[in-house]
Simulated assay, not measured.
Amino acid sequence: MNQLQTPHSGYHWRGSSSRFFEGWYYRVTLPEDGQSFAFMYSIEDPSGNKPCSGGAAQVLGPNDEYLCRTFPDVKRFWASCDRLALVHWSYPKIPAVPQIIPPNEFFESVSQGYQATATYNQGAIADPSSGNSCRWEYAVEPVYGWGNYGEPPQATAGWSSFLSIFEPGWQVLMASGKATGWIEWNGKRYDFIDAPAYAEKNWGGSFPKKWFWINSNSFENEPDLALTAVGAYRKVLWSMECVGMIGLHYQGQFYEFSSLKSQLEWRVAPWGNWQMQAINDSYKLNLSGISDYPGNYVRVPTKQGLVFSCRDTTHGSLKLEMRDRLGDRVLLNAESHLAGLEVGGEPWEETWEYPL
């Protein structure tokens, strides 16, 4: 398992009192129900006793409905530095040091909180003001980490991501997996077997100044296809840079287009339209994302703490076409109506075009 573990799976905080956050994103897509559930966990300034110290669990549920629960006590958070494993809870029914506990004991021991690993995700949160609630428990069989099937997973941002020069760090933990279990949303239960699952994480001082994100591993008639794409204006040491990347897993092969090794272009509206094109030495890829849904805002870590600075939907329409380098032969043509589409950061007042 350690040899197959995705880079950066472990917790990055090492006791510093400097501004720090780490966040994890798990998603399950239910094609038969036409819905998705995205679980977002975060911890900020874990040294404690700071204005932003604390954690949160957020869920983007059916029809982009939103639920959030904060966990102010950083001492009830735990994460492994060696592998993907994290816990945060409040109001435990039994005194306990935060740690991964047997799943069959979790709901009896913890009234609100979560525990998650590379192969499991479980939790329960509720909003006392509205009465809305969510409970979940599912196991995951990873299929793709980040890279070719059967080979050691790669760092999403390359070898340099192991150096503390980028802000923030980012890693796709599982581009595609199979989830089996259940999710209960406001009393309605969703049971599923081998549902498409995804996981990623980020860490550092704050999110990028501006970014967009495109993701799907639930395509019509293409069960062995997963795509993640991103564009960001981020901090590098003492300067800022614009970067982009597209990663495509298809039939055991990994196709990567990065702004360092490929020609990337994008045109992303403040909301509703995501267009991206990439060309490398062998392939040409076109992405077109559209959302008729208004989406919903979720909280992300900033210098000012956890604030609503990100707009998301899991009901985006995404078209993908990959051709050979000359554009003469179509190698892949796929479509999804349950894609994740996102914009975030500084106010989007006009369309973002790159390059200008």
Rank of each mutant, 00 (worst) to 15 (best):
Y138R: 05
F257N: 13
S109Q: 09
G61D: 02
K284C: 06
G61Y: 14
S282E: 09
A126N: 12
S258V: 03
V330W: 08
T302N: 00
A232V: 09
T156R: 08
W13N: 11
P128V: 11
R69A: 14
W348D: 10
I43K: 06
T351L: 10
N296D: 13
L306N: 01
E265I: 01
D328I: 05
Y144T: 03
S239A: 07
P294S: 04
W352S: 07
Q112G: 06
G169P: 07
M245A: 03
Q304W: 12
S262A: 15
W266I: 02
S80Y: 06
A57P: 06
D281L: 15
M1V: 10
D73V: 15
R267L: 10
D191P: 03
K261W: 04
Y190T: 09
E342Y: 02
L331K: 14
D328N: 04
V236Y: 04
S133W: 14
Y297S: 04
W203K: 07
W348M: 14
V74T: 15
L67G: 01
R323F: 06
E22M: 13
Y233C: 04
E137V: 08
Q99P: 01
E342P: 03
V87K: 12
Y233H: 05
A116L: 10
S336W: 00
P95I: 11
V74H: 02
K75G: 07
Q253E: 03
K178N: 15
S130R: 12
E349L: 06
I43Q: 00
G61A: 09
N217K: 00
K188T: 14
V143P: 03
E151H: 14
H315Q: 10
C310S: 12
N202T: 03
A38D: 09
V236D: 05
Q304P: 02
P142G: 02
A334I: 06
F106E: 10
F37P: 13
M245R: 11
